[in-house]
Design a protein around this nucleic acid. Structure first.
Length: 499
RNA sequence: AGACUCGUGGUGUAAUGGUUAGCACUUCAGAUUUUGAUUCUGAUAGUUAAGGUUCGAACCCUUACGAGUCUACCA
């Protein structure tokens, strides 16, 4: 792999940064589950640590107790374990609350911070600031009464991040520190400082933090202490992975959950890691997909089709092929006399009988030169069996079509263009496909919210006995599925139809 | 509206001022095929624009245009 991040790090090494001092971190906030987009940040950090043979921490950036909890912490740990990445240490920003507080007091003493009240009144007197700041800490005030702001005046090119808030009052139980703190540091104040405390060398983040970079450096310069760590961490931003027609935003994922559009985060319509695990994706394939798309600063837009196509090419030769019929239409094989077993790949057998089912759409009454499957003119092969051709159609008393066909064992099969799947009528087993469309968001509106539904599919009973849970299967000419629970397949994706 | 960042075929990504701008996917055509899948062969298609510096520019400079992000007591 070759990208601007590696080049920049190698450049730092060439300028004298010692390789053994390189250190990386993946720093999610435990306020939601990870999705395919996070994988990009996870991968690059773990890759760099491996590449340079240095350390990497998993840091939970838990600076805001509002939506954080231990469930998300454990979920993230489990997801990373599933991906197969190994970190040296788990750390928490909340471990640094004391030291961050002391640093903030120092900032106040050095005239680098001030207090602002709810009615925008600014307080610059150092003794007063220290007094109020302490009262904020011990809970003398209500939420929003005061904030501590950094005094960056005119130092930074981007005026929007001037005088950022360092501390705000949030009177809420923190999942790790309980009620110890009534004030919590903001991202801007906590993140770079945590990097410095942990001696992270390169702090990789997604592109939306680039506006904060001058501030990141400003704060670091203010707390810099040569005796503790002579190297300042460096923020490098890369563009995030945007996949169209899906949701890669923690906020919206949480909204879906709150609105009960999804029951849980492994809902197949999502691209959360939980969902991808549930659907039986191989972590290596996901990582290869990330790798393939690379790391740059420009904004990208990858479609879900590209993702599916990439995965398809990875798994197509490794996935067992089975036959299933979704909308059955009955076929009677005229010159068929005795039911028999067909052995498939020496691994299981299926039954063929006089009456079988095929897909309704694999038969066409009207002849059409673009139609290669069963008709009165076309021969079509039955998979694992012989060619057939229709000669008669009847409607039974329930109004259902029954097609009568002849088997042609000895004709030249060279010109037969199509092979179709089938299931014996006397050995069928009803199963279900959990079908869905991706939920996505456009202009703040959610689409495909009620897109999860069950569809029937029939398969051979003997095949049924051979299915293994949590295995991927290819339904011949339909698509890829994970056998996720008894009698249920979950769609991974369908083949694209060309007809 | 401003600040910051970024503009390479349809998409993603290489080319660190030096061959004819490379690779992969998509699309299209042909071959193979008991999956209209896969595989194989081939084709189409690109440096946002204009100017400047240079023997030489995708790369450096200027301007314009376009896109993304931010302008939160979220991260």
């Amino acid at each position: 792999m070759n990208n601007f991040i590696i080049k920049e790090i190698i450049n730092d090494i060439n300028k004298g940064f010692p390789v053994y001092k390189l250190k990386f971190r993946f720093a999610p906030e435990p306020n939601g589950v990870l999705h395919i987009g996070h994988l990009k940040a996870i991968y690059i950090n773990f890759y760099l640590a491996k590449y340079f043979k240095t350390k990497i921490y998993l840091r939970f950036d838990d600076t805001n107790p509002k939506n954080e909890n231990i469930y998300f912490v454990n979920n993230i740990i489990n997801n990373i374990k599933w991906l197969g990445f190994k970190y040296n240490k788990i750390t928490y920003t909340s471990n640094y609350f004391d030291i961050l507080y002391k640093m903030a007091v120092n900032m106040i003493i050095n005239n680098k911070a001030y207090i602002e009240s709810i009615n925008k009144k600014k307080i610059y007197d150092i003794d007063k600031i220290l007094f109020i700041f302490n009262n904020m800490k011990i809970g003398r005030y209500n939420n929003n009464d005061f904030v501590l702001r950094a005094k960056t005046i005119n130092n930074l090119p981007n005026y929007h991040i001037k005088d950022p808030i360092m501390y705000r009052i949030i009177k809420k139980k923190h999942y790790r520190t309980n009620y110890k703190w009534c004030i919590y540091p903001t991202y801007d104040w906590a993140h770079g400082q945590s990097d410095y405390i942990e001696k992270i060398s390169h702090s990789l983040c997604s592109i939306e933090f680039q506006n904060h970079k001058p501030l990141y450096n400003w704060f670091i310069n203010n707390i810099y202490n040569k005796k503790y760590n002579i190297y300042k961490p460096k923020q490098i931003e890369f563009s995030r992975l945007n996949i169209s027609n899906t949701i890669t935003s923690k906020r919206y994922l949480n909204i879906l959950k709150k609105k009960k559009i999804i029951k849980n985060y492994k809902d197949p319509r999502l691209m959360t890691l939980n969902s991808l695990i549930y659907k039986g994706y191989n972590p290596k394939n996901l990582i290869d997909f990330i790798k393939k798309n690379g790391f740059t600063k420009r904004n990208t837009n990858i479609t879900i089709d590209e993702f599916n196509n990439y995965i398809k090419n990875k798994i197509i030769n490794k996935t067992k092929i089975i036959m299933g019929v979704r909308k059955p239409i009955m076929i009677i094989l005229k010159n068929f006399y005795k039911k028999k077993y067909i052995y498939i790949n020496n691994s299981y057998k299926i039954l063929i009988s006089k009456k079988i089912y095929i897909e309704e759409e694999d038969f066409c009454i009207k002849h059409n030169s673009n139609f290669f499957r069963l008709s009165f003119k076309n021969y079509v092969r039955l998979k694992y069996y012989y060619p057939i051709k229709a000669y008669k159609i009847k409607i039974n008393k329930y109004g259902k079509k029954i097609i009568y066909c002849n088997i042609y064992k000895y004709i030249n099969t060279n010109k037969i263009k199509s092979t179709i799947q089938w299931v014996s009528s006397i050995n069928k087993k009803n199963m279900y496909i959990n079908d869905y469309k991706y939920i996505y968001i456009n202009n703040n509106k959610l689409f495909n919210c009620n897109s999860l539904n069950k569809k029937k599919i029939i398969i051979d009973k003997y095949l049924y006995n051979n299915l293994k849970l949590n295995n991927n299967y290819q339904f011949l000419r339909i698509g890829f599925f994970n056998y996720c629970k008894i009698n249920n397949f979950i769609k991974i994706f369908y083949f694209k139809k060309k007809y």
